[in-house]
Every structure is written in C-alpha cells, then in structure tokens.
C-alpha cells in the first residue's frame, strides 16, 4: 500500500465533517470539530450554521487559524456574537441538529467521561464537562470523536459526564433526556454507529485497518454492521485532495491535525 498522504487526525476531521448535513445547525465544541465544521461548510454543507457555547454564530470558516472558539478570527465577520443562554436555549428547544463531543472514556451506549478517570490506584481529575453534558442531553444527535486507544473503551465509565443511550436496550426512548443521543463515533481507526438498542456497532474501517484489530480493542464483543442489519462494514472514505487543502489552510501548522 502506498504511504498515507494524510494523518489520522485529518481523516477524523473529514469523517466528522461528513456527519454534518447541509442546512444543519451544528453545535461546535473544542479541538477537531473547530476544523471539521469549517471543512463541511466549505464543501458539502454550505448552508450549515455553527453555534458555539461562547455565543458565536458562524456561517463560514474563520479567516485565520483558531485555537479556541473565541479567537478573534472566529469572532470576525461572524453572523452573530451573542450569549450562552441564547445558544443553549436553541439547544434546549431542539433547534440544534448535531453536536460534537469527545471523551477520555466511552462505554457501549455512548456514555462519556471527561471528569474523573482511574489511573492505577489514583483517581485522576480531568477538566470536566464544559458544555458537553448539555450537548449530550439535548442535541438531536451527537457525533463522538476520540483517539483509538483501548484504555478509553470500557464496560462502565467511571463518571457519566455526558449521557449516552439507556442500557436497557431502549436507546433514548426511556431515557430522561430530550435529545436523540449519540449517532456516531469516529476514532483514529474506524467509525461506529449506534443500533436501535442504542449500542455501538462497527460501521467502517479506516484504510489499512483490519476488523479483528479494531474489535479486539473493546472489552465487550463489538457488533458489526452485519450483526445489526445495517449493511456491511465499509472502508472509511479517505480525505479528498480538496478537503486536505482546506484542513491545511485552517490548521496550517498541523496543531490540531
């Protein structure tokens, strides 16, 4: 196989961007989603709109690299710079189509932990929720992004910062939360969906990655698309040349990607 012309994180960005549909209102979080929205709105989703919990609303990429949603290029020529209650109210009313979340730990139902993890004998304190719990509870669907590291995949998360689906097989039907819950997980090796019971299944493998290698990283028997009648496991699309050019424009030094 020819050597890859892109990094794992660049592929995660384009896979995440492909989860954004045209005309979506997108709740954009920190890190890779900052780049993923800019790629999506520049390619297949020109009518999508980004809302950021800081109060920023955008319909176009920032004209300059951004570390955070509040860097001046993200404020400059925004659609609006409003406040958090305005943005979170849109989320609570059900007006946000998709939100992005990350996590230090995930279980099979998409519960995420970004607060406390166990490191050997010691509990390690992480920064916490930020807006993640709110997005997880109230967005119509969420897309989860995390590096593909076996220690992150657990039977039970140490702390539910961001609720996923119910563990009784009812997805979000009996869940106390208003939003639709997780719809996809993108790691640095594969993408996953959630079946009707709200459980993860393997959807696509990134080029060069084997199914046996991916499923072995989970402490439970990972279903595949075949197992849950969702077609077959496919190969994740590689970033197109135009997408890579955009990523490298938005993140010229590869800080995030």
């Amino acid at each position: 196989m020819a050597s890859k012309t892109y990094t794992d994180r660049e592929l995660m960005v384009t896979a995440a961007a492909s989860e954004i549909e045209d005309s979506d209102t997108v709740f954009v979080g920190m890190r890779l989603p900052l780049i993923a929205f800019q790629v999506a709105v520049s390619t297949h989703a020109p009518n999508s709109m980004a809302v950021y919990e800081s109060g920023v609303v955008r319909d176009s990429p920032a004209d300059g690299f951004i570390h955070t949603m509040c860097d001046l290029p993200n404020l400059n020529r925004a659609v609006s710079t409003t406040g958090m209650i305005d943005i979170m109210s849109r989320l609570q009313r059900g007006d946000v189509d998709v939100g992005f979340l990350g996590g230090a730990e995930i279980d099979r139902y998409g519960n995420l932990n970004t607060t406390w993890v166990q490191g050997g004998e010691q509990e390690i304190r992480l920064p916490g929720s930020g807006g993640a719990c709110d997005i997880a509870c109230m967005a119509d669907r969420t897309v989860l992004l995390m590096p593909h590291e076996p220690r992150r995949f657990v039977e039970e998360v140490n702390y539910v910062t961001s609720p996923g689906h119910s563990s009784d097989g009812s997805g979000r039907d009996t869940h106390p939360q208003a939003g639709g819950g997780p719809s996809a997980l993108v790691t640095s090796k594969a993408t996953f969906g959630f079946d009707d019971d709200g459980e993860l299944y393997l959807r696509s493998l990134h080029p060069g990655v084997s199914e046996s290698e991916v499923v072995a990283d989970f402490p439970w028997e990972m279903n595949t698309a075949e197992d849950v009648d969702e077609g077959s496991v496919t190969t994740t699309a590689e970033p197109a040349t135009a997408e890579l050019e955009l990523i490298r424009t938005f993140d010229p030094d590869g800080f995030w990607t």
């Binding site: 979170m88 609570q92 997880a136 509870c137 109230m138 539910v160 910062t161």
Partner: peptide
C-alpha cells in the same frame, strides 16, 4: 428548570 443534567453524574453525584 432545565432539560439538561438528568442522566449525568453531574446531577446524580
């Protein structure tokens, strides 16, 4: 009141 929080350990704990 809010529709957020319930189902999380931010609420439970």
């Amino acid at each position: 009141p809010t529709k957020s929080l319930i189902g999380s350990d931010i609420f439970e704990r």
